[in-house]
């Protein structure tokens, strides 16, 4: 059985930052593994640990810098990795759902996995759509926002809990092959061990260009255009207490006592 885990390197923004045109100035960005994808990797590795003959392949779309991120997936236990990138993607302002779907579709055709795990959403652009869009493109079954997974390899069924709003979970059986989008909290992602990090250095990260995937450069052309980016206006009318921590606490304590708290 083969599990394909899609991961994304995402940019986090520092508390103070500047916007340059329709993007955040690079100087204020820090790159890291997308939080949801960390849980997806862990889920894939746990499947490999509990079932026989499972290969976990991790795939990312990203420039050379993203090797650091995909190397983390390898250090945590993925067997090998694929990094899709192309010079023609350098200038793309936004890889939209459609573009990512097409690239991952080509990877799936190449790899022929039984199960694809992706994060529910990426922390930067927050579309939350690629997994389900991909499932449609590759004619897999799917489930979005999975926070519990019970895989029956023999019956080729994934028993999942989908985390709905308001503390309700939907219990669903999903036929394989399937794409599951993984919610945070489904497991406890491990830290990479020193041994894992050493082993990851020897694992393969296969670079693939659009040409390798049989795609042309126009795959990145988007119908979406970001025409403006700005900081939302603060709507704050909070009464802020100032001074030393003791002075701040004393003022807040006054408000709380007036409200009958702790009396």
């Amino acid at each position: 059985m083969k599990v394909l885990v899609t991961v994304k390197e995402v940019a986090a923004v520092e508390d103070e930052f500047e916007i340059d045109g329709t993007a955040i100035d690079e100087a204020y960005l820090e790159y890291d593994l997308n939080e949801w994808d960390d849980y997806a990797i862990e889920e894939g590795v746990q499947i490999a640990e509990s079932e026989d003959d499972v290969e976990v392949v991790s795939v990312t779309i990203g420039p050379e810098r993203a090797e650091e991120t995909i190397r983390m997936a390898l250090a945590k236990g993925a067997d090998r990795a694929i990094r899709v990138w192309d010079d023609s993607l350098e200038d793309a302002e936004l890889l939209d759902v459609e573009a990512k779907t097409k690239m991952l579709e080509a990877v799936v055709e190449d790899e022929d996995p039984d199960l694809v795990l992706s994060g529910v959403q990426a922390d930067d652009d927050g579309f939350g759509a690629t997994g389900v869009s991909l499932a449609d493109a590759i004619d897999f079954e799917w489930a979005a926002v999975v926070n519990e997974l019970d895989l029956s390899v023999d019956e080729r069924v994934a028993g999942v809990h989908r985390e709905l709003e308001g503390g309700v979970e939907e219990l669903t059986d999903v036929e394989l092959p399937a794409v599951l989008t993984i919610q945070t909290g489904i497991n406890e992602p491990r830290y990479a061990s020193l041994r894992g990090i050493r082993q990851a250095q020897r694992k393969e990260i296969k670079p693939m260009t659009l040409d390798d995937l049989g795609l042309s450069a126009d795959v990145a052309e988007s119908n979406l255009e970001i025409v403006d980016m700005y900081e939302p206006e603060s709507e704050s009318d909070a009464e802020l207490f100032e001074g030393s921590p003791e002075e701040e606490a004393a003022q807040l304590a006054g408000v709380l006592r007036d409200g009958g708290v702790g009396q």
Partner: peptide
């Protein structure tokens, strides 16, 4: 809706019909 269920069919429909998907 950009709900858990909305995100469970919207992107599939968009892909199938060739619609550009704008979420949330």
């Amino acid at each position: 809706p950009n709900s858990v269920n909305g995100l469970d069919y919207g992107p599939a429909v968009a892909n199938s019909l060739g619609l550009t998907y704008v979420s949330d």
